[in-house]
Design a protein around this nucleic acid. Structure first.
Lengths: 195, 195
DNA sequence: GAGGTTTAATAACGATCATTATGAAAAGGA
DNA sequence: TCCTTTTCATAATGATCGTTATTAAACCTC
C-alpha cells in the first residue's frame, strides 16, 4: 500500500553516477544531483539515504557496470594478456565519455576535506581489493610457469595499477586515446617474458 | 610609512602550502588556512589576494622547492638516468611527509566543482610543461644516440609521467616507499637500451 | 468510498563557504 | 604632536552546503 514511486531508481542512480564521475564526491552538490536526476532532494534521501550512502551505491554500480573489464581480464590465460586487457579496458573507460573522463573511483581518493575521509577510505579499500586480485593472478601465473621465477607478483600488480592510475589522471587532463595507447604499449614492453 | 606587517609572508606561504597539499584546493577552507598560518582572513586577502591567487602562489613555490628534482634530472647525461632520478625524486617527495602524502599538483587536477575549473586548467598546463620538457630531453637523447632509433620520445615522456602520477595516487592511498620503489624498478626494467 | 500509508514538493533548517566593510592599533614624516 | 598610511582583528555579508519538517497528493486495503 502507499503511493508509488514516480521516478526510476535505476535511472536516477545512473544520473548520479555521471555527476559523481564528473565532479567527484565533494564537488557534486545536491543541486547538481537533483538537476541531473530530475528528483527532488527529499526523494533522494528517502530512496538512497544521505550523500555518502548514495555515493557508495553509485560506487558499487560503477564497479559492476564500468570496471567489468577487470574480472574479465583476470580470466585470460596468460599474465601478459591480463595486463594488456586491463590496460585496454582502462583506456576505453577513461576516454569513452567526453563529458566525464578519467575514473570515478580515483577522483575521490585524492583531495577532499575531513568529512570526505570515510569515502576516501572506502575507495582505498576498493583499490586494494583490485590490487590483491591482480597479485593473486600473477602468483598463479608464476606457479603455472607463465611468468619467470624471478618475477615479483606484488611488484607487477603494484606497477600495473600505477600505470592504470596514471592513465586515469592523464585522461582527466585531456590526453587522447592514442597517447594513452602508447603509454600502455610502453608499459607492456617491460613485461617479464616467459622463462 | 604605515604599519609594519606582523607575520612572516614566507612562513605563511609554507603553512598554506601544507594545507593545500593535505586537503587539495577545494578541500582547504579559510578556517584551515587561518589556523595553519596564524594569520586572520583579511590579512591573507590583502597579502595574497583571493583563494585562487593564493593557491597559484603556493603552486609556484611547490614547483620551486619540492619538484626541483625534475630540472635536476633533466641535466643528467643519459635518458635512463633522467627517468631513474625523476622516479626516485617522486618517491621521496610523495612519502617524505606523513602528514601530506602524494603530490600537491595532482590532488587538484582531479575532481572539483565548477568554480575550481581555472585552477584545474592551471595544473593541467603545469603538467603539460613538465611533459614537454621530458619529451624534448628524450628527443635530444635520441639525437645523441643515447636512445635507439626506434624509441618514441613522446611515448616515453607520457609513460614516465603516467608512472609518476600513478605513484602519487598510490602514495596518497598509503603505499609504502618500498612498494613504490618496486614500481619504479619495474618501470625502468626495460627502458630502451642504447642501440 | 473511508482510513491508513507511502511518496512528492515546498521551504526552511543551522552550518560553513569565500569575501569584505568597519574601525582600532601601529608606524613614519612633518 | 598631529597626520597620513598601512595593517590589524572583529564581525558581518550573501551564497551555498547537506539535511529535514511540513504539508499536499496518490495509492492500496478494507
Amino acid at each position: 500500500m502507499g503511493r508509488h514511486r514516480e521516478f526510476d531508481v535505476e535511472k536516477a542512480l545512473d544520473a548520479a553516477l555521471c555527476v559523481f564521475w564528473r565532479k567527484g564526491y565533494e564537488g557534486a552538490s545536491y543541486a547538481d544531483l537533483t538537476k541531473a536526476t530530475g528528483v527532488e532532494r527529499p526523494a533522494l534521501y528517502s530512496a538512497f539515504g544521505n550523500k555518502e550512502a548514495l555515493f557508495r551505491k553509485v560506487l558499487v554500480r560503477y564497479y559492476e557496470r564500468y570496471v567489468d573489464y577487470l574480472p574479465a581480464a583476470l580470466q585470460l590465460p596468460t599474465a601478459r594478456e591480463v595486463a594488456a586487457h586491463a590496460l585496454q579496458g582502462a583506456i576505453d573507460l577513461t576516454t569513452r565519455y567526453p563529458e566525464h573522463t578519467g575514473c570515478l573511483a580515483i577522483q575521490g581518493v585524492l583531495a577532499g576535506s575531513d568529512e570526505a575521509e570515510p569515502v576516501r577510505q572506502a575507495l582505498i579499500e576498493a583499490r586494494a581489493e583490485g590490487e590483491a586480485q591482480l597479485r593473486e593472478r600473477f602468483e598463479r601465473a608464476k606457479a603455472e610457469g607463465d611468468l619467470p621465477e624471478t618475477a615479483r607478483p606484488d611488484a607487477l600488480a603494484a606497477f600495473l595499477l600505477a600505470v592504470l592510475h596514471g592513465m586515469a589522471v592523464q585522461a582527466k587532463a585531456g590526453f587522447s586515446r592514442d597517447v594513452l595507447a602508447a603509454v600502455a604499449e610502453q608499459a607492456l614492453s617491460t613485461w617479464p617474458a616467459k622463462a
